[in-house]
């Protein structure tokens, strides 16, 4: 429960950071081919308007999971990977847009990772095979990740024309899918997008159920900490 709550808080924060004050609200609902709401999908809007320097982003590791599961950032964003677990992680990526490896660490590494190429970066942890996370790097100034109901919302999207791109971890060939254009006026706009997936949407992998042995080990190591 607390994880869902935190995730919502983060999503809200992102939206707040991204929303210009003067723009009108734009909301969209993303569904899959079956019409089911699609979570963890990225909707990005391309506009000719230049964007400012992207704000840094954070991708936590909580409870041996990447949070959020999908993070969308503008190119050049510096993302820090704080480790909120009491164990070490070794985050890596072999993805073309950004290859990196954060050696075993605890807490927040000193240097954030700057994603300077657009594309999909798949994150893994070298010591927790199930840990999986995505960083969607885009040039589009406007982008957001859908919530559990498949909703995205841009409150202060200025009027103008936008080219819409959709992406999801199970997108065909893992590639972003163009979803037409969008004409934004002062009025609030509400759209619904359908994304055909290569496979059914995968939920973010959870840590395997702890075994009595692991529990015992864990509690012991916790007790050992000052």
């Amino acid at each position: 429960m607390s994880r869902t709550f935190i995730r919502r808080l983060v999503a809200l924060g992102v939206c707040l950071l991204a929303a210009p004050v003067e723009a009108g609200p734009f909301s969209a609902t993303l569904v899959d081919a079956q019409g089911a709401p699609l979570a963890h999908a990225v909707l990005s809007l391309h506009a000719e308007t230049p964007a400012g320097t992207p704000a840094p982003a954070v991708l936590d590791q909580i409870d041996k999971q990447f949070v959020p599961y999908v993070l969308s950032v503008r190119r050049g964003t510096a993302v820090s990977f704080p480790n909120r677990d009491d164990i070490r992680h070794q985050v890596y990526s072999f993805s073309e847009p950004k290859r990196f490896e954060l050696r075993l660490y605890q807490g927040t590494p000193s240097e954030p990772v700057v994603f300077d190429q657009p594309g999909v970066v798949v994150l893994g942890c070298n010591i927790h095979d199930w840990m999986l996370g995505y960083v969607y790097v885009t040039d589009d100034p406007w982008h957001a990740v859908s919530d559990a109901q498949g909703r995205v919302r841009f409150d202060d999207l200025p009027p103008g024309r936008y080219r819409v791109t959709l992406w999801h971890p199970q997108s065909p060939a893992g590639q972003p899918q163009p979803a037409g254009e969008l004409a934004m006026t002062d009025a609030a706009l509400k759209r619904r997008f359908t994304l055909d997936l290569a496979s059914p949407p995968a939920t973010p992998p959870a840590a395997p159920a702890s075994s009595p042995f692991a529990d015992a080990f864990q509690s012991k190591s916790r007790a050992a900490q000052p």
Partner: peptide, 9 residues
């Protein structure tokens, strides 16, 4: 065996 990075590649 599958080679994952972390997705199966």
């Amino acid at each position: 065996a599958e080679i994952r990075a972390p997705l199966p590649i």
